[in-house]
Design a protein around this nucleic acid. Structure first.
Lengths: 205, 205
DNA sequence: GCTTGACAATCTTTGCCCCAGTTGTAAAGT
DNA sequence: ACTTTACAACTGGGGCAAAGATTGTCAAGC
């Protein structure tokens, strides 16, 4: 569905990946176009040939990152033969765990050490898409009797999962833990949530 | 149990409360002893009569805050006639919700806009004490059959509650929500956790 | 289609000095 | 037990100029 598979698309992807890496290390303000170009083994003018300016490059890099993260996460959610809980843990890790413990501090938001530029138009749709995919996966595994017995909607469960994951990420970041520790913490929280859900937690797609 | 009820103890308490308020508004670095003294209606030298220096004053203020927060939270946990879930929501609010949406950014940690001073010796014991109280309240409401059915220890549930609360706080802070919205978000998460726990959620002390 | 070299305009960084504000201490007063 | 007044030492911010880096654009070349 994406043009990522074409030859020049692949080149663009590589450049954007490198750019994101550099932005992640130095922040938007202190990352220079020169550094990015050298890291991507192209000339600085080569960059300007593909991206109008620094801001456009930055936005494109974020965009690509969100796209691939969303791809990975939804793939996790739809993996055949895996129980709901396992799929959700994997998806939450793919979606929010990618940068825990890495040099990229935490949020994309933290990438902007600057006053803040408008990124909502890129971030919000991706966030909504993920939330929907998560809620859909839960809804698919939830029988009518589950719904009545628990008195919960898929959306409420989604929100709770979000909170647990965000909390695990926050705690892991605060204590400078590794991504593994984050996943363990997050998975433990998810397990508690699903503990009372019975067979629903193990339902496969 | 505390010397808070003596006359001079009350005076000290008032000063520390004011000091915390000022520290909260300006941060440790930019809050001046003069401002604190004036806000507390005493002379600057009066302050030095009770506290060796700024750092000592700051630590004492934090200490008092943690003490009263812990007091309130444990009181919530032991309220007679209230179900476990309600008691926990109240306790988590008392313990972590106090500053959400107020001028005090979020954590005590954020109070230090400075390189960071060692506060672990004050904060850690309070944290441990709260965790223990929370786990004890859960354990008391958990029958042996609950434990077997869910396959969870009180400690695991405690950790999950922690993550949910932390996540709710993080999200509420990020979106500049009010304390009410934080409590609602947190309570929703707690409700999801307890949804599958059955009668245990409503057990009273 | 991308590279190198060059350039003006702009934004950052650095160093310096000066001044206002703050800390911690002291003495004398009530 | 606390206040007022006073003071030396230090810190941090504001202003400002010089030096350096960065951005965005252009032209020539392969």
């Amino acid at each position: 569905m994406s043009m990522a598979s074409t030859a020049d698309g692949a080149r663009r992807e590589r450049v954007l990946a490198v750019a994101l890496e550099v932005f992640g290390r130095y922040g938007l303000r202190k990352a220079s176009m020169d550094e990015i170009a050298r890291s991507a083994d192209i000339s600085r003018q080569g960059l300007y040939l593909h991206f109008a300016n620094k801001e456009a490059l930055f936005r494109a890099a974020i965009q690509q990152e969100l796209d691939t993260a969303l791809d990975e996460a939804t793939t996790c959610l739809n993996t055949q033969g895996l129980g709901l809980e396992q799929r959700i843990v994997a998806a939450l890790d793919a979606w929010l765990g990618r940068y825990v413990g890495s040099m990229l501090a935490s949020d994309i938001g933290n990438l902007l050490q600057t006053p803040a530029m408008q990124l909502d138009d890129i971030v919000d749709p991706a966030t909504v898409a993920f939330d929907n995919a998560l809620a859909a996966a839960i809804a698919a595994a939830m029988s009518e009797s589950d719904r009545r017995r628990l008195g919960l909607t898929p959306e409420e469960i989604t929100e709770a999962l979000h909170a647990v994951t965000q909390g695990a990420k926050y705690l892991s970041n605060a204590r400078a833990e590794s991504r593994e520790q984050f996943v363990a913490r997050m998975a433990a929280g998810v397990r508690v949530i699903f503990a009372g859900f019975g067979a629903m937690a193990r339902r496969t797609p």
